[in-house]
Design a protein around this nucleic acid. Structure first.
Length: 659
RNA sequence: GGGCUCAUAGCUCAGUUGGAUAGAGCAACGGAUUUCUAAUCCGUAGGUCGAAGGUUCGAAUCCUUCUGGGCCUGCCA
């Protein structure tokens, strides 16, 4: 149901008589929007004011001439002019009720399929398989999954692909660790845990060695910063009132502070590592470990039999682990073409780049220089190894052959935006002009300390235990015996488990999706499982209340077949508001996919749930004055429930009938 | 140095692409209940939209400058 589109059509016929310039007409139509002032209007047209100059008439006069020609009598109960020239529309409750009657008999709750479906590839999640998954992975996974679901629901042909990091340096780490540090018994008993331990062990030695190696550079940096401060201070003494010099001193001091802090924190890391005898011993016995690991990786890529055999052996275990997470999150991909899948195609990529005069040798590496970028895109290293940029090009070429997408989305965090800008520039030069590439970037997941989770440093909470914790807390709140008793819900343990799982996982997903994806977001378990306010639990709870009423209706013999065919009526203001919100479901979905912002969906669902609560507060459903009224309200309740369920489903969040 | 990005209520965040008096949630305060599930509803209070200019009918939103964070910046992904 697209009421806005219908209203715009009506305006379009009028505007074609008043405005000659087609561009001006189009921009005017876009100024017809859902009202920002629900008290005054349902929809508003802000078109008269900007036409003041082009038409050379006062806005109120323009607005009046538009209103005079408009034919909206079937749709609207009132069309009025207000303020500086706003045209305010109020929908007719009778007309809206009929539209909702139509939506009700539609399994898609009134959402039509797009007229021109596009083939859309969504690349999301894409973890490195050998590293344990952590909170940092959740954004790409949850946001990407939701975008894919919504696009598919809207009628597009969607292909999801989990671009697994199954071929990178981390395998060199595990292979090296396996060769030197493995505990055979542990490996046999629990391969994934052992591999993960090996990864961490190797990784921490490399981090330690890198920290030690960086000390001279950091010390030099502090010294340089000192000198800068001295120079700037002397300059300031010579000219105490020069503002530019004052700034220089401040900047120099700031630089010194930063350099000192970096040195101090690195020294602290080293000190911490040195209190760990096992790590020190590893480091002594395996100097320059990073190079050795790169050597193992290079050997793997060269086709070294032993390493390849190990890779073949490790990969299924690693995949099992991440698949168990996806199973739990209820996420299924169409494809999982990991990086390794493209390995054989990489030489051809380099050849093609040379053939098209895009690539040039530089400092022993192969680079693509691009206008507007300081640094080139490096596609082959000095040692001959390929990089993720190379793989990304190969992937895009493969997807072009295989799927021929109109749109290709990369749901990856914002730190890689420059990489994608370069990638898209290269792809265009190669000739992939048919596809619209888009980096759907998102902010960093921060800890409660406000600092980003860093894959390579410190102890990171594993994703699995995080999910466990959320479910655990959901259980404590939702399945509290006192609460269930008061609510009159008797649940066995099996039902409780389902409820806790649904609410707990929903909390994590919803918290993520409800933030504007472009901003950084603080992962705070305490807040998201509090189950109050703008949370998944509130929306899920509203759904459960709706189901409860429908159950009670059946119990008093008001089965759906009796009221489903009855006409809906939007008599009370709150019913009208609720109906209006229901009618905007499709518009909202289209809006949210315009720039791929799922937070519009959570916002919509939260608003819908709140309106529903107000409705239940103000209107009796089962004890309505007349049966006719009760039937209408039952229908409204059912439609709210279905819309909530459908909306949550598009976010990858489930519902339960009782909670 | 260059580039990207962010700054909105005490806290966490929205803000429909430039529209009317800047909105929610949490926290605070005051009301409502023999509940169709109170995980609720209604209300009060809380703001120099980081700062200063500019663009125009109109700016949190656009342009410039400044301040302060975050990120990226040739051989990780």
């Amino acid at each position: 149901m697209q009421i806005l589109a219908l209203i715009r059509e009506r305006f379009a016929t009028v505007l074609s008589e008043l405005i000659e310039d087609p561009k001006l007409r189009a921009s005017s139509l876009e100024r017809i929007v859902p009202s920002r002032e629900p008290q005054l209007a349902d929809y508003q047209a802000n078109i008269a004011m900007p036409l003041q100059k082009p038409l050379g008439k006062p806005p109120l006069e323009i607005a009046q001439s538009i209103v005079d020609r408009l034919n909206l009598t079937d749709i609207c109960s009132s069309v009025s002019i207000a303020g500086a020239g706003y045209i305010n529309l109020k929908l007719s409750p009778d007309w809206l009720a009929k539209e909702l009657d139509q939506a009700y008999i539609d399994p898609r709750v009134g959402v039509t399929s797009v007229k021109e479906p596009k083939t859309v590839v969504v690349d999301y999640s894409s973890p490195n398989v050998a590293k344990p998954m952590h909170v940092g992975h959740i954004r790409s996974t949850v946001i990407g999954d939701s975008i894919a679901k919504v696009m598919r629901f809207l009628g597009h042909k969607v292909i999801t692909d989990n671009h697994l990091g199954d071929w990178g340096t981390q395998f060199g780490m595990i292979i090296y660790g396996y060769k030197h540090f493995r505990n055979e018994d542990d490996y046999r008993a629990r391969p994934v845990a052992e591999l993960s331990r090996l990864y961490r062990r190797v990784q921490s030695v490399i981090a330690y060695q890198a920290a030690v190696a960086s000390i001279p550079r950091l010390e030099q940096g502090v010294e340089n910063a000192h000198r800068k401060v001295q120079l700037a201070t002397e300059k300031l003494n010579a000219a105490p009132n020069d503002k530019k010099t004052q700034k220089e001193v401040a900047a120099a001091n700031n630089g010194l502070k930063q350099a000192s802090e970096e040195l101090a924190s690195t020294q602290e890391k080293i000190a911490q590592a040195q209190s760990n005898p096992e790590l020190l011993q590893d480091s002594e016995r395996h100097p320059t470990l990073n190079e050795k690991v790169l050597g193992e990786t290079a050997a793997l890529h060269r086709g070294d039999k032993a390493n390849l055999a190990l890779w073949d052996e490790f990969l299924p275990h690693c995949q099992d682990e991440i698949h168990s997470v996806y199973r739990r999150l209820n996420i299924v991909f169409d494809h999982e073409f990991g990086e390794s899948y493209y390995h054989d195609m990489l030489p051809a990529v380099i050849e093609e780049l040379f053939a098209k005069s895009l690539a040039v040798p530089s400092d022993g590496a192969v680079c693509v220089f691009l206008p507007g970028f300081d640094a080139p895109m490096i596609v082959q290293k000095q040692d001959g190894a390929y990089l993720y940029a190379t793989t990304d090009i190969a992937t895009a070429l493969f997807r072009e052959r295989e799927f021929g997408p109109d749109v290709s989305l990369y749901v990856v965090d914002h730190r890689q935006s420059e990489h994608f800008n370069k990638l898209f520039a290269v792809l265009e030069k190669i000739g992939l002009v048919h596809t619209q590439f888009k980096h759907v970037s998102f902010g960093t997941v921060l800890g409660t300390d406000g600092k980003p989770f860093k894959t390579r440093s410190g102890s990171v909470v594993g994703l699995e235990s995080l999910l466990d914790e959320a479910v655990d807390r959901a259980w404590q709140v939702v399945c509290d015996p006192n609460r269930l008793k008061v609510a009159g819900l008797e649940m066995d343990d099996a039902e409780k488990r389902v409820v806790a799982e649904t609410v707990g996982l929903g909390a994590i997903k919803y918290a993520d999706l409800s933030h504007n994806r472009t901003s950084d977001y603080v992962f705070d378990m305490d807040k998201m499982v509090r189950l109050e306010g703008n949370t998944s639990a509130y929306v899920q709870y509203s759904y459960a209340r709706a189901q409860s009423i429908l159950r009670r209706a059946v119990a008093q013999d008001w089965t759906p077949d009796r009221w489903e065919t009855a006409p809906m009526r939007l008599a009370e203001n709150i019913e009208m508001s609720l109906g209006l919100q229901l009618s905007r479901f499709e518009e909202m979905l289209l809006q949210s996919m315009q720039d791929f912002t799922p937070n519009l969906i959570t916002e919509y669902l939260f608003d819908l749930a709140r309106l529903f609560s107000s409705f239940l507060d103000q209107c009796q459903v089962l004890k309505a004055d007349t049966e006719r009224e009760a039937f209408s309200r039952l229908k409204l309740t059912a439609l709210v429930g279905r819309t909530l369920k459908q909306g949550l489903e598009l976010l990858g969040i489930g519902v339960v009938d009782r909670m």
